[in-house]
């Protein structure tokens, strides 16, 4: 049973960043070794969420859909201007609200990952990558529920491009990735100070108004125009909305830059997360 001749697993006080290559190898091995655990954790979370609610996943998009209906009513009452939109207002606002919801959920949930799994990381040596993979799967799964609604709205309101929608499906994960990458980077800090989660929560309302969800914002010199020019959420939202409904690109280069940026942030966040777990396991 024992195999004392095998190489020893040595735990020291040395920082893992001193041997970055070894740490990256460890992360890759953790991702491979932890894929079944990630799948089980993903299933566990889903089953647990569904079993505790009668309407299950319906709640995920009920809130933004209700808000979208309110905006449609306001638009009909002439309260909201809808100049410059290349699609029916209903399509614009439903896409805007649901895409923002996908981003906000991808931002809000992973940040509490370490606390939610504190019973695991303090008791068992699990690969941190398995926690990240399980959470990413969960975010993609939840986000996927918006797709049939978006498809339905686009078809019914006659703003549907079959090819464009296929491209939309391919690019849709970028919105998840954007929120997820920022959240993973902040998750270790949130495990120490919950203020991080509170800041994220307080961003929900401002983002609703700062992103082109229910109004059109051109890329002009106005304050909103400048904000939206550099706002990665706005860039992804505008591109996904336009490609799905008309098959046209809004600003593909900006979209590519956002996607690459999110991937880089995610890589850095995953490294930070990996290094942080042994430090935080004694403190959460």
């Amino acid at each position: 049973m024992n195999s004392p001749a095998q190489p020893a697993d040595v735990h020291t006080t040395d920082a893992k960043t001193l041997s970055l290559r070894a740490t990256l190898r460890e992360m890759a091995a953790g991702a491979v070794r932890g894929r079944y655990l990630a799948w089980r954790l993903f299933r566990r979370e889903n089953k647990s969420e569904v079993s505790s609610s009668f309407f299950g996943y319906l709640w995920y998009f009920a809130d933004p859909l209700i808000l979208a209906l309110v905006f449609v009513l306001l638009r009909r009452g002439g309260v909201i201007e809808a100049e410059g939109m290349q699609m029916p207002y209903g399509v614009y606002v439903v896409f805007g609200m649901l895409l923002l919801q996908v981003f906000l959920d991808s931002l809000a949930r992973p940040v509490g990952l370490i606390e939610r799994h504190s019973h695991l990381v303090t008791q068992v040596k699990v690969p941190p990558e398995s926690l990240l993979m399980a959470q990413l799967l969960h975010q993609l799964f939840m986000a996927s529920f918006t797709i049939p609604i978006l498809l339905f709205v686009a078809v019914v309101l006659d703003a549907f491009s079959p090819v464009g929608f296929l491209i939309f499906l391919l690019l849709f994960p970028v919105m998840v990735l954007l929120g997820f990458s920022i959240s993973v980077l902040l998750a270790p800090l949130n495990a120490i100070y919950n203020d991080v989660q509170n800041v994220i929560r307080s961003l929900n309302r401002p983002l609703l108004f700062l992103c082109p969800t229910f109004y059109y914002a051109g890329r002009d010199d106005s304050v909103l125009g400048v904000i939206n020019q550099y706002n990665p959420i706005a860039i992804v939202m505008d591109n996904l909305r336009l490609i799905a409904t008309s098959g046209q690109w809004h600003s593909p280069v900006s979209l590519l830059l956002v996607a690459v940026g999110a991937a880089v942030v995610l890589a850095g966040g995953a490294l930070f997360f990996h290094l942080a777990i042994p430090i935080l396991a004694e403190r959460v």
Binding site: N2, P7, A8, D9, V10, H11, L41, P278, E282
Partner: peptide, 24 residues
């Protein structure tokens, strides 16, 4: 599970920690 602040520990073989039952 946690890092020492000084010293080292070397372990040869598959280790299983039962700190609490029913993790997960």
């Amino acid at each position: 599970l946690i890092k020492p602040d000084r010293g080292r520990v070397a372990v040869r073989g598959r280790i299983q920690a039962l700190i609490a039952l029913g993790a997960g």
